[in-house]
Nucleic acid binder design. Structure first.
Lengths: 235, 235
DNA sequence: TTATGATATTTTGTCGACAGAGCATTATAA
DNA sequence: TTATAATGCTCTGTCGACAAAATATCATAA
């Protein structure tokens, strides 16, 4: 079925076609609605979004640098795919950046932003039972990003956001498999408390454990994740 | 089987226009041949490179995500510009990532890659007097990237390469101002030695000092750099 | 059958064109 | 004079088109 682009009602010029394409494709890649390694057909996308190939290609070039798609000269763009090591590398990086961030938070006294994080998460703690997995992952990412943002390094936050998007599918699985959801909820609260009490040593300890740098259950989660993505393909 | 061996000059098409434009524009931005904040004229670039605007725009979209140019809807692309804090943030990030890298280098025994870095730098040490500033900065970046690469996390290396490119103009000034060039040359050698001797504590100490996280002379260098870039403009 | 070659189809990479937004300049009014 | 409106020019954002490369399809030979 083909649809004509003439049906664009209330065509909001405020949202550029490139941006729309970017967000649309990124979402498909993040959730692996486009399977890993699969070729991305520009014409197909252009028709689906009711635009020409030009903005599609511009968006794909953005996603290429962002690590969401790969590129082969003459063949075009493909959904990113990764090995267990690739995922582990991204998770390691994320842990390193967050660790660095908390070590760079300066004076922690009387900071409304810390309090805001705390109270937001306390709300999550009370109603996490009514939240679905997507909402939970979203809240979790938000917590960690805001934590890192306390250090005030916007560039680091940007990178962390990018990594979060790229490993989101793994984080979803990690949360699903979390035996007792209240564990990680409580850990976030403890992190906030250590922050407010300015207990740096405790803070580092808590975060290291929470992010699970040396967590032995990380490997099986990654493999579970890859198994799902790649279906019956052998890694 | 191979096809008939015809001298295919068409193979010189191997360098895509997009990639050419990307490298060309990036170079101008890195060296601030395009002044910070200046609007980038697509038609001008297209004519200068003998191509149409399409590949130019694709390249610009890549550079946008890479942090080399900014974008304003309806106005186009502009050379990146930054404040003293922006530079400091990038340098902080770079330091954090390198620190994290060396803490993740596993077994350091009998590693040819470590020896290779050492011997390469020893060569630099002997002939650094005949090297110009660009060569020196290049060698320095190379050293640090290879150091970080020892940890085996390709994604981190990618980010470090990106940051190096973005702060290169500052690093050039830092090197110019280095009172005794042999200082930093010697520090690299010491870092290698600490690596080979597996003296982790010493290694961290050396690197922290070398990268100058808390170096008080960092601030004046940044300001000197920005002053040059922005010429008489006030920051 | 499998391999090879010719042919048809798809898809990329790039081009030139154009409407409209943005910007500069001139003309007009206060 | 200064401020505002009109005018024309520049440049962006997107489109449709096309050649060449890549891929799929089919035919033929071993």
């Amino acid at each position: 079925m083909k649809k004509k682009g003439s049906l664009n009602k209330s065509n909001s010029r405020s949202t550029l076609a490139v941006k729309h394409a970017h967000d649309y494709i990124k979402e498909k890649v993040i959730d692996f609605i486009i399977p890993p390694g699969e070729h991305i057909n520009e014409v197909e996308l252009a028709e689906a979004l009711g635009m020409s190939r030009a903005p599609i290609r511009e968006a794909l070039n953005q996603l290429y640098i962002g690590g969401f798609v790969t590129f082969q000269s003459g063949k075009g763009f493909f959904c990113r795919k990764f090995s267990a090591k690739d995922v582990a590398d991204l998770l390691e990086l994320r842990a390193d950046l967050e660790s660095a961030a908390i070590s760079h938070i300066g004076n922690k006294e009387a900071r409304p932003d810390i309090l805001a994080i705390y109270s937001t998460w306390k709300e999550v703690a009370t109603k996490h039972r009514e939240m679905n997995m997507d909402e939970l992952v979203n809240a979790d990412e938000d917590f960690h990003v805001k934590l890192a943002a306390l250090a005030g390094n916007e560039e680091r936050v940007k990178i962390l956001r990018n990594i979060n998007e790229r490993v989101r599918f793994i984080r979803k699985i990690a949360l699903e498999k979390e035996p007792r959801r209240s564990n990680f909820i409580g850990e976030h609260l403890k992190i906030c408390e250590a922050l407010m009490q300015q207990d740096q040593a405790e803070l580092i300890k808590l975060l290291d454990y929470h992010i699970g740098i040396n967590s032995s259950q990380l490997k099986p989660i990654i493999h579970e994740g890859l198994a799902r993505i790649y279906a019956e393909e052998i890694l």
